[in-house]
């Protein structure tokens, strides 16, 4: 929970968090090394100096680290852990549902662990969705369309094989699909970050919520158009958030665009931990205002009520979290560092 300077308690549901192992021991090849190196460059590029981590800790942090950074030092009440396999790059996967669930078991009241699948696996993907539902009762999945799989260097949400998977998700009640758009490699004739496939999938699967992480950056302009037309498309703020520190005016322009086009009910906070930690992001966000000239042009502003929605209430709605009940439950189980 975040306590505002005037004492108000704000419910924080961190919509985008990872528990990864990117250590050299787990890397299968140069691509695995380059993947975690790229994350680390995001971390060093956009973090305040006092929030920087040494490389080894960044590559692999402990169960105690994540608990402390999110809930003890950080203001999160709950966090959604996203799974990303990258099997071609990491021996045991980058962040598997099994490893995350094992970590989350220490504090199940605080974590939602999402699954992931690769539609290019065909029948096996469908079996895997059943397995995740039965074993972990997942409420959501994370899709990484830029993942390599043998000769394939990327896929699209509206591929026929993907549609079979989403049909099954719909049937099993796995309603939240978090989409990460990374740079797909080939064919070169496609825009690697194109968000067009979100438009198709969101239209064809009205029962599913499509949360586009990193709010479609680097195609924010295209994404805003799409999200305006689709009622079930949401914007995740992971990666956009840290700009609040390095380029506050740009951050204001991005927020103004999102509020204008998509609206305050469909924007979700995410720290993208461990690339960034939620403490400084939430503090800066609460104390932030969109510069007046930008706010006036778009007729929007980040009021306290809007910030409260973005920080937790919007995600709580998608994941059927009763915020009052959850607050009461957490008040009865205050944070503590587990015995070493």
């Amino acid at each position: 929970m975040y306590k505002t300077p005037d004492g108000k308690e704000i419910f924080v549901l961190d919509g985008h968090v990872h528990f990864w192992d990117g250590s050299p021991e787990n890397q299968s090849n140069i691509h695995g090394k380059q993947f975690i190196d790229c994350f680390y460059a995001y971390h060093t590029n956009l973090s305040p100096k006092e929030e920087l981590w040494a490389k080894a800790r960044f590559e692999k942090y402990t169960e105690d680290d994540i608990y402390r950074d999110l809930f003890v030092d950080g203001p999160d009440d709950m966090a959604i852990i996203q799974s990303t396999y990258l099997k071609d790059f990491y021996k045991n996967g980058f962040s598997s549902i099994e490893r995350s669930t094992s970590m989350a078991r220490r504090h199940p009241e605080r974590f939602i662990v999402n699954g992931s699948f690769d539609p290019r696996d065909g029948e096996k993907a469908l079996e895997y969705i059943h397995y995740m539902k039965e074993t972990f009762d997942i409420k959501g999945v994370k899709m990484y369309t830029a993942e390599w799989n043998g000769d394939s260097k990327g896929w699209a949400l509206n591929d026929p094989s993907a549609y079979k998977c989403f049909e099954l998700c719909d049937k099993l009640g796995i309603r939240n699909v978090h989409v990460h758009k990374g740079p797909t490699i080939i064919p070169l004739s496609k825009d690697a970050f194109s968000v067009d496939d979100v438009d198709y999938a969101a239209t064809d699967f009205q029962n599913l919520n499509w949360i586009v992480e990193h709010c479609g950056l680097p195609r924010l302009d295209d994404f805003c158009w799409i999200a305006t037309q689709e009622t079930n498309v949401y914007a995740g703020l992971a990666v956009a958030m840290p700009f609040i520190h390095t380029r506050p005016r740009y951050f204001g322009e991005v927020m103004a665009e999102l509020l204008f086009w998509i609206g305050e009910d469909k924007i979700l906070f995410g720290s993208d931990y461990a690339i960034w930690t939620p403490k400084w992001l939430v503090e800066k966000f609460w104390n932030y205002q969109i510069p007046e000239d930008i706010a006036a042009e778009r007729g929007v502003q980040l009021t306290d009520a809007v910030k409260e929605k973005i920080l937790g209430l919007n995600a709580a709605r998608l994941y059927d979290i009763d915020v009052a009940a959850k607050r009461a439950q957490l008040a009865g189980a205050p944070v503590q560092i587990a015995a070493e």
């Binding site: 995001y42 956009l46 680097p218 195609r219 924010l220 302009d221 805003c224 740009y250 042009e297």
Partner: peptide, 18 residues
């Protein structure tokens, strides 16, 4: 036009930093 400009500036800032 502003949406396009904001998007491109954002990408530019990200790329420069990285």
């Amino acid at each position: 036009l502003r949406s396009t400009r904001i998007n491109m500036e954002f990408n530019g800032a990200m790329c420069r930093g990285l």
